[in-house]
Design a protein around this nucleic acid. Structure first.
Lengths: 215, 215
DNA sequence: CAGCATCCGCTTTGATACTG
DNA sequence: CAGTATCAAAGCGGATGCTG
């Protein structure tokens, strides 16, 4: 990227991460941890293969990404974030927070990967019954699945999915998002193709964290 | 900008504000409030005039910016942020936070406007003597000046500068930044061309807010 | 197959000139 | 002053080819 040449902290940051695709590559590394080239490509539908290579090289030069030869069982190159790269996590959260309204309204024809919902779930949802025992809610949109765990007041998306989730929410990514983040109640969501299976109390546990008005 | 077409809150946000120059235009509007076209252009050295026009039109269509005909005394178009645009302020703060190390290290040959330091000062500095009466510190780099006010534990950059600041810090933008944000002590800063005038206690009031180790 | 590099048409950007 | 028009250069997207 061409530098803005402005002595401004915001412009300096954008000099490093303002290029097209760069922050989405950081997203993949933040969400997946150390990843192979092809794993990154799978999480970045639409990227040109040469751009992924270019960006990874730039990020490595800038000190955001490490390239390591994986040990024998994997036998491949692994890309991971440096500590400087990890420090972009709060920025990712702010981007996700600002993007929530657009998730509720848009999404037709978009590509979808379940792990993309992970930062939104962790940052924007709360467990409203912090004193109850933990529960696990599985989201299913076609092949894509993600588990949410509500415990002690917060929502997490464990890397290791539980064998037997307490409830399962199936449907299009859009209707799942509207039910979780958009205040769409279960009856209306069902009319729009959402399928709910398991303990009905589980869905009640998980609510938008701030004062979002149901629509 | 071409959409990423990903059903991901971060990608949706970048669809709106990921274009080159867009976030810097938002910065200007956040820092200056309602602004005329030429004021924006002055705060965005390097931008092509057609790009500024294009971006303002896109931001208006996206609901981030209002275009209003100013009342008679000004007789000009004014650009301002909508509430949706104002909601980008926390994102600006995170970009500034991540950019601080680069401000301490870089900056040669960059353009500079004093108001660009305002979010860094407010977000990254603290008033270490919250019980003392407020003090005002003026920064001067050539034509560019900015006043910091330390009061009640926090640092603000008032829109209306005080007539008689309690102290004045003059020098290159880089040495001012290193003295304020980079832990450079006053003696060394003086050797690098910093000029300090006024009550010596004033500079002591203002320190990086988190555990930044002096270098 | 993983991990790129190359090529090429298209889009975006940058610099400058121009206009109401 | 407040933009619009023009055009060259750079960046991007998609296809394809190469190497271990």
């Amino acid at each position: 990227m061409r530098s803005y040449n402005q002595y401004c902290a915001m412009a300096k940051t954008l000099d490093v991460i303002g290029d097209r695709w760069t922050l989405l590559i950081v997203r993949e590394l933040l969400l997946r941890g150390p990843s192979r080239y092809t794993d990154l490509r799978d999480g970045l539908p639409g990227i040109a293969t040469n751009l992924l290579g270019d960006r990874l090289r730039e990020l490595e030069q800038r000190g955001l990404v490490n390239r390591t030869a994986a040990p024998p069982p994997v036998a491949s190159t692994l890309y991971s974030l440096t500590s400087r790269g990890e420090e972009l996590r709060p920025l990712m959260i702010e981007l996700v927070r600002w993007g929530r309204p657009m998730m509720v309204e848009q999404g037709d024809g978009d590509d979808f990967r379940a792990h993309w919902l992970s930062p939104a779930a962790e940052a924007l949802l709360a467990d409203v019954a912090p004193d109850e025992p933990p529960v696990t809610l599985e989201l299913r949109a076609g092949e894509q699945t993600l588990q949410l765990q509500a415990a002690a007041g917060v929502v997490r998306t464990p890397a290791e999915p539980a064998e037997h989730p307490d409830a399962v929410l199936s449907g299009s990514p859009q209707v799942i998002v509207r039910a979780l983040f958009g205040g769409l109640d279960l009856a209306k969501a069902r009319a729009e193709g959402l399928d709910f299976d398991g303990d009905p109390g589980v869905l009640e546990r998980v609510r938008p964290a701030d004062g979002f008005s149901p629509g």
